[in-house]
Write a protein that binds this DNA or RNA. Structure first.
Length: 727
DNA sequence: CACCCTCGAGTTCA
DNA sequence: CTCGAGGGTG
């Protein structure tokens, strides 16, 4: 048997070698020279040759070199890992409460914890040292991933002693997961490298954990051993090193939360929560969010709370797990053949779903941009049924790697906008086909081309008469940042054009009730006591709104013209600098480009727009229709907020988004659309979203409604005194 | 020239 | 909310 001194030396060697290995694979300078490393390694091998009982699974000799073939070998768990029964709504949960109650005679204390959407694993610690890490597999036999575990800092290799002791045996269960923030970063990197992106953090965790690090190491060793010289050999080594480093970095991002014990020797616990305390004391990562609740109501509150705060947690959550806390009561309830009766998983509605990609169609926008979009089997996700999602451009389709006919992962970005994440590769059967970007406009047949060399977007150059573009422009005039005409949207625009009531957006303000009567879309059968067809209520109101909107401020008129690169903020700058549409029309490119925020491209676009005859016709017709062509000179009032940039998010009592922004600009302040380092203040109302997170992470001060009121009344300093403490 | 910031444009569903 | 691209800055 090995002496105590030999055991200690063995442990030192193992730690030193493991540390050196980790350091080596990070970009840091290696801590040990090759010779030093080899010396330690030889000593370890010799020590284990003399005392074979030391050569446990955690030893680098077992995981490096000889034992590499063990990767993914089946491992039998010491105790079976059960799966959990699921409850998908309050009713099913109540039914479980009832069963527990009738089994025990009362509702017992219950431990509630977040159900991490990750990868279940089983780790065995013998005498405080990690012996094996395995995936769950079928619950009885999993796959060995011990070799990779050495690169995962979140998996303790050695347990902390408590009162100088560690359990003789401790089998723990937990969830390996990929933090959401790291997931987004890794996926961006994958995309940059032209590699397939991961559908979700869970997939990323699984993919990372199952990487064949051992093979990469072997390949690299083999190439190095060849000892070839020259640029090509060096490049090959460099590439393999970079790939290995990336693979290791992904393992380093993995995190672990333990949530159960299997076989145990040398430690006693009486409750589930007590077991967590013991595991935590030994240095195992337990969740800080687990809570014991004494009543069913407490459990429901826990579920409800995290239903609303799903995104405030560092990992994805697919539900809540509820466990009877007392182990004696757990035993009393027992298990069915597949799941314990003493635990239940409450599942939240999924946020990432699968559906069939039926087709990829293209849309032609107001500016002629041709955008591919996904047509899918309708599917419910995050509260609504989705059947379409934009794919932005042909390169995005390529990058996502989706084929028509694929099963695809779908989510709602920011809980609102549907986003296709990528294909379910395993579900392919060969019948899928690639999307081919059309070469000609689907609406007018004109050949598509990029606006300029190197652009990713293809456009239909037939600006003047492409039906899609005209329709979109007409509808844009009624849009929220243009004339904001209620009733003038897609449908009305299509009808006006279809019936020939307008040729393009120029004719809108010359429309009469008689015109509209010639089009079915705007009319109905005569009612009692009426003669002939009548305008519908909606048509009357649209006409009235159109007439009533001619007096809108100049910037809205400019936005409505659909000049390339000119949206609301730029239009505001133009209106302020020139004061009238005529002045803008007559301005030279140089005069335009002199405005802050307007460079050569936008200046050119504006100048060229007014050089076009049919564009000037639009302006003339609008003028005849009574549209405002100049802003009245407003005396600049007090400007206490001059030089201040704020961002407004969420909803503020008593303000619309627009009126809140107006209030700030009236006082000389600037309202930006997104949070950056330059943002001086974030005004966050109710239900603030991702901007709030961003502001927090950038250290931008955040105020609520009171702070906003103070800002308007007394300026920035007053507002800052209402700033929320950083979370 | 490489960055960061903003803006533009298209966008989903109830 | 997303991507792409224009503008300004160091």
């Amino acid at each position: 048997m090995a002496t105590e001194a030999e055991r200690t030396r063995w442990a030192e060697l193992v730690d030193a070698i493991n540390e050196a290995r980790v350091a080596y694979y990070q970009q840091d300078a290696p801590r040990l020279s090759d010779a030093e490393y080899d010396a330690l390694y030889s000593e370890l091998i010799e020590l284990e040759r003399q005392h074979p009982e030391l050569a446990s699974g955690e030893s680098p000799t077992q995981t490096v070199g000889g034992a590499r073939s063990e990767m993914f070998e089946p491992v039998e768990h010491l105790m079976r890992m059960y799966s959990l029964d699921n409850a998908f709504d309050a009713e099913e949960l109540d039914a479980w409460f009832d069963r527990v109650q009738s089994g025990l005679g009362a509702v017992p204390a219950m431990l509630c914890e977040l159900k991490i959407d990750g990868l279940a694993v089983d780790a065995v610690y013998r005498h405080g040292r990690l012996e094996s890490l395995a995936t769950r597999g079928d619950g009885t036999v999993g796959e060995d991933v011990t070799y990779n575990a050495q690169f995962i800092p979140a998996v303790p290799k050695v347990l902390d002693p408590v009162d100088g002791r560690v359990p003789a045996l401790l089998e723990v269960r937990g969830e390996i997961f990929f933090p959401v923030a790291d997931f987004d970063r890794i996926n961006a990197e994958q995309a940059d490298l032209g590699l397939p992106v991961f559908a979700n953090p869970r997939n990323t965790a699984a993919g990372s954990l199952r990487q064949r690090i051992d093979r990469r190491e072997r390949d690299l060793d083999a190439v190095r051993a060849e000892g070839r010289e020259g640029a090509r050999a060096e490049a090959r080594v460099a590439r393999l090193e970079a790939e290995l480093r990336r693979a290791v970095e992904r393992l380093e991002n993995l995190r672990l939360t333990v949530h159960g014990v299997g076989a145990v020797e040398g430690v006693e616990v009486h409750t589930q929560s007590g077991a967590y305390d013991v595991m935590a004391a030994h240095g195992l990562p337990v969740s800080s969010r687990a809570r014991v609740h004494e009543s069913a109501a407490g459990v429901r509150d826990f579920i409800e709370f995290y239903g609303e705060h799903r995104h405030d947690v560092e990992h994805e959550i697919d539900g809540v797990v509820i466990k009877v806390d007392e182990l004696a009561l757990q035993r009393q309830l027992g298990e069915t053949s597949r799941a314990p009766r003493w635990a239940m998983a409450y599942k939240y509605p999924p946020e990432v779903v699968r559906t069939r990609l039926l087709d990829i169609a293209v849309n032609v926008g107001r500016t002629g941009r041709v955008t591919p979009f996904a047509v899918m089997e309708p599917v419910r996700v995050a509260g609504s049924t989705v059947s379409m999602a934009t794919l932005h451009n042909a390169f995005e389709v390529q990058r996502k790697g989706v084929l028509i006919g694929d099963m695809v992962f779908l989510r709602k970005a920011g809980d609102v906008i549907p986003e296709v994440l990528g294909p379910v590769i395993d579900d392919r059967d060969g019948s899928e086909r690639a999307f081919v970007m059309p070469t000609h406009c689907p609406e007018c047949g004109t050949e598509l081309r990029p606006e300029k060399e190197g652009d990713k977007d293809l456009r239909c150059p037939n600006t003047r008469s492409c039906p899609a573009q005209v329709r979109e422009r007409v509808s844009h005039v009624g849009g929220r940042s243009a004339f904001d005409v209620e009733g003038l949207g897609d449908k009305a625009a299509a009808a006006l054009l279809h019936c020939g009531l307008v040729e393009n957006e120029g004719d809108l303000f010359l429309l009469t009730a008689d015109d509209l009567l010639r089009c079915d879309f705007f009319t109905r059968e005569p009612g009692r006591g009426e003669e002939g067809r009548q305008l519908t209520e909606n048509a009357r109101s649209m006409l009235a709104n159109l007439r009533g909107s001619v007096d809108r401020p100049l910037w809205r008129v400019i936005v409505a013209l659909s000049i390339r690169h000119v949206g609301a903020p730029t239009a505001t700058d133009l209106a302020r600098s020139f004061g009238s549409l005529d002045a803008i029309a007559e301005a030279s490119v140089e005069e335009l480009a002199a405005i802050d925020g307007i460079g050569p491209t936008i200046a050119e676009a504006v100048h060229e727009w007014f050089a076009e005859d049919w564009h000037r016709d639009i302006v003339d017709k609008w003028r005849r229709g009574g549209v405002r062509m100049a802003d009245e000179k407003v005396e600049a009032g007090e400007q206490p907020l001059a030089g201040l940039t704020v961002v407004i998010t969420g909803s503020l009592e008593g303000f619309t988004r627009e009126s809140a922004a107006q209030a700030v600009t009236d006082l000389g302040g600037k309202v930006a659309g997104s949070v950056s380092k330059k943002t001086q203040l974030l005004v966050a109302g109710e239900n603030a979203g991702s901007k709030l997170d961003k502001a927090m992470s950038l250290g931008v001060p955040v105020v609520g409604a009171e702070g906003f009121a103070a800002l308007l009344a007394d300026g920035l300093d007053a507002a800052l005194s209402h700033a929320r403490p950083e979370a």
